[in-house]
Amino acid sequence: MSEPTSTSTYKVIGMACHNCAATVTEEVELLDGVTAVTVDIASGSLTVTSHGNLSPAAVRTAVEEAGYELAAP
């Protein structure tokens, strides 16, 4: 039986182009348990699907490693 998945959406500050989306996506995809990452540049949204519950702190760290910031929830 497969582990349940969860999906969370965040707002990223500073994205403006496809290079930004690729940089954020590549960093968040490295997190354990992440199965899908979707970025919408126009709205600045980042949607992360993962096995189990992914820590928002881990997502924030990955986004910051990519050079961007998460907006306050």
Partner: peptide, 22 residues
């Protein structure tokens, strides 16, 4: 308007910091 994405002054300014970092 870049690839259909509308960027104003504030969004262009907020893009500078990540570009610098990267």
């Amino acid at each position: 308007i870049n690839d259909g994405i509308r960027l104003d002054w504030d969004r262009l300014l907020s893009h500078i910091h990540p570009v610098r970092k990267n």
